[in-house]
């Protein structure tokens, strides 16, 4: 009886909520309250630049792990992780034939968590290639390249190539025997092309064999050239997933 007569007052929880999520600073950043109501949940996705890669709602079947196994998302996550660890590695690494190897050794022995940093970057690079391949297989076996997603499949193939190139250019940087000879083997293959083989190899290496010029070229491509290009293709890829009506669904 009493509760009907009294207008509902703010409970303790509501006061805490207002304090945390309805204050001037929070609302200047996020525009919405804490996403605990459907309205706020949609608003937070629609108004946040990162979450805005998503639609606000998606079909039930697409949140099932077994539909995508999160493989595309995880490939992208690897890319982000590689960017973070890569930037940190750049603090310690100078791309010169004289210094490169010693820098890596110093990174592993003198820098706190340096070895961990390098390991993370290396294993994430391998993981990214495997994840991208698996993502491609998941897209293929779910028939998700079919109309209207033909072009996004092509963008995907370009992303796959760029992923391989990113890894390959990074492989040379430690300037150890593994790096040097792997790149020698790889670029020799390029040199065997029936047309413009020698020319492409020369362009790639900045000379006839793996040396200073090759190192600086691979480094520049690895830390800025290819990341910029892949970012553009990633943007197109994600945009197209949205534009093509979200993930593929049975007709």
């Amino acid at each position: 009886m009493a509760s009907v007569e009294r207008p509902p007052g703010k409970g303790f929880n509501d006061q805490i909520y207002d304090l945390l999520f309805r204050n001037y600073v929070w609302q200047s950043i996020f525009r919405t309250g804490y996403p605990n109501t459907p309205r706020n949940q949609m608003l937070v996705v629609a108004t946040n630049v990162f979450l805005h890669l998503h639609p606000t709602r998606i079909h039930r079947t697409h949140v099932k792990i077994t539909h995508t196994y999160c493989l595309g998302g995880l490939s992208f996550f690897m890319f982000l992780g590689l960017t973070v660890t890569g930037v940190l590695l750049m603090f310690y690494y100078v791309p010169s034939v004289e210094r490169a190897y010693a820098d890596i050794q110093a990174l592993e022995t003198n820098v706190r968590f340096g070895l961990l940093l390098r390991n993370l970057h290396r294993w994430m690079a391998h993981a990214m290639i495997i994840l991208v391949l698996l993502h491609m297989m998941r897209v293929f076996y779910t028939g998700a390249y079919k109309p209207p997603r033909e072009f996004n499949w092509v963008v995907g193939v370009v992303l796959f190539i760029l992923t391989l190139l990113l890894s390959f250019t990074g492989y040379l940087l430690p300037w150890d025997q593994l790096a040097f000879w792997a790149i020698t083997v790889g670029t020799t293959m390029v040199g065997s092309a029936p047309v413009l083989g020698d020319e492409s190899k020369f362009l790639l290496l900045g000379g006839f064999e793996v040396g200073t010029n090759a190192l600086i070229r691979f480094y520049t491509l690895h830390v800025i050239g290819l990341p910029l290009v892949i970012s553009i293709f990633l943007a197109v890829h994600f945009w197209r997933v949205r534009r093509d009506g979200g993930l593929a669904r049975p007709l």
Partner: peptide
């Protein structure tokens, strides 16, 4: 009715 909200369902999985 066939759709779910991205937050929390998808964001959680991700």
């Amino acid at each position: 009715e066939e759709e779910v909200l991205v937050w929390p369902d998808l964001v959680f999985v991700e």
